[in-house]
């Protein structure tokens, strides 16, 4: 029999209560729509996609960063993850935006997506330095998702002094026995 699942989001009673608030019907205000997805979503719900767009806009400030593109790339990358992980991420994003959770944890009534940029940064900072492992790992999961989505794009390479080799000799290695005496 499979053991009871306790994902990182569900760890601990407090985490479970937060999940219930974030994932259920208690969200007071829906996320603000910033950019409609340009492709059908593979992994995230539409509300969660909007939260990720807003999060990406604050986390990735490199030249040329497009929050909608970043969120779309993250949605594609997540399509290779376990279904459980996709569900976790979707819940995490709803939790991140949820006004009621914000009120309980941060004394704010406005959803993340509707905050001005400086206050969004303050929310992210509180998750980053929280005493709750749930919030720290949640911040890391979202942060990594956005940053990896952006920086895996070739448009970033020139600004990083990065490139890939050209003119490789692929023909030399066609024999599976190459190198044998």
């Amino acid at each position: 029999m499979p053991s009871p699942r306790r994902s990182f989001l569900q760890k601990g009673l407090f985490g479970g209560a937060l999940l219930a608030l974030g994932g259920g019907g208690l969200a007071l205000v829906p996320p603000k729509t910033r950019q409609a997805p340009r492709q059908p979503l593979l992994s995230l719900s539409e509300p969660s996609f909007q939260v990720l767009v807003a999060f990406a806009a604050r986390v990735v400030v490199a030249p040329g960063a497009d929050p909608g593109e970043i969120a779309a790339g993250a949605d594609l990358a997540l399509s290779y993850a376990l279904p459980e992980s996709r569900t976790d991420l979707d819940r995490l994003l709803r939790l991140f935006d949820n006004a009621l959770v914000g009120l309980v944890l941060d004394q704010r009534l406005t959803p993340f997506t509707r905050l001005p940029p400086e206050e969004q940064d303050a929310v992210i900072e509180r998750w980053r330095t929280s005493s709750l492992v749930l919030r720290r790992t949640g911040y890391q999961a979202l942060r990594k998702l956005c940053l990896a989505s952006h920086y895996t794009g070739e448009a970033t390479w020139a600004g990083l002094g990065y490139s890939i080799p050209v003119g490789l000799n692929q023909a030399a290695y066609e024999d599976s026995k190459v190198g044998l005496p």
Binding site: D121, I124, R143, L147, H150, Y151, T152
Partner: peptide
């Protein structure tokens, strides 16, 4: 770039 971006600390 992608691997390093995920590992590097912070945001913004």
């Amino acid at each position: 770039p992608g691997l390093a971006a995920a590992a590097a600390p912070g945001f913004g």
